[in-house]
Design a protein around this nucleic acid. Sequence first.
DNA 1: CGGTATCCACAAGGATACTG
DNA 2: CAGTATCCTTGTGGATACCG
Lengths: 143, 143
Amino acid sequence: MREPLRADMFDELCPSALNPVRFGDKWAALIIRCLEDGPRRFSELRVPLGRITPKVLTHSLRSLERDGLLTRTVLNGTTTVRVEYELTALGRSMLEPMAIACAWVAEHWEQLLDAREAYDRAIRFDRAAAALPAGRRAAAPIG
Amino acid sequence: MREPLRADMFDELCPSALNPVRFGDKWAALIIRCLEDGPRRFSELRVPLGRITPKVLTHSLRSLERDGLLTRTVLNGTTTVRVEYELTALGRSMLEPMAIACAWVAEHWEQLLDAREAYDRAIRFDRAAAALPAGRRAAAPIG
DNA sequence: CGGTATCCACAAGGATACTG
DNA sequence: CAGTATCCTTGTGGATACCG
């Protein structure tokens, strides 16, 4: 027989597996991919990230910096301020697993949407049936 | 020169890349791995998931079912009720990218923790320095 | 056994406006 | 240019108790 699941099954994993790390972050995956070809500036990153607000972008970048995935460098020109964000070796090592995850999503996104739609339709049908008197379920609608 | 980042860079990806999918879910990765070797029952899943509450487990399972990643089957015995959860083909296709992601985390978890610790130490130092009078920063501590 | 129901805390994310 | 500041909404997860 198949072995039962053990209580310490995930003990060697970090707590909650992927969640505390950047796989679960809404923007992190995108930011990391933006930095794939080299350092980028703050305002440069805002372009592909659509309608991300500066607050959220700052927070995401700080969080990635804290985890050692990228570095933040302030370049002082005489009049302007430049800040560049660049992947560390640790950050680079994440590119491949991230790309694989993104590829899976891209490949199966349609299937996922279809499944959701079908599920929601079934739920609506069930609820409609439950709202009818017991003997009348699946009967022809009267109006 | 390196190309600028385009605004439509992520248009072919699903909105927010990984987030709406199960990579970002706290429990989904673990649940999916629990089902790797075949169908499991509700109470069976509670064991390796530590202190997950039934409400949260139910919600996670429903969400995965909705996305077409697993199926829920009620097996009516005469006196007992069995419910089994089993991966679909779509769910199975996620095992590999998920394993790769988990492997990355497991492999670099220590580095991440170290980076966080170092970052937090630096922040605390900076804040302490900022709290001193301007001329005294980085001076010897007095007591 | 396999869940619901209810209430709650916290954090992520967003809208909007302002700053060194 | 590269952010802060403030306020707010939502969602995720948890605690506890109860149900068919």
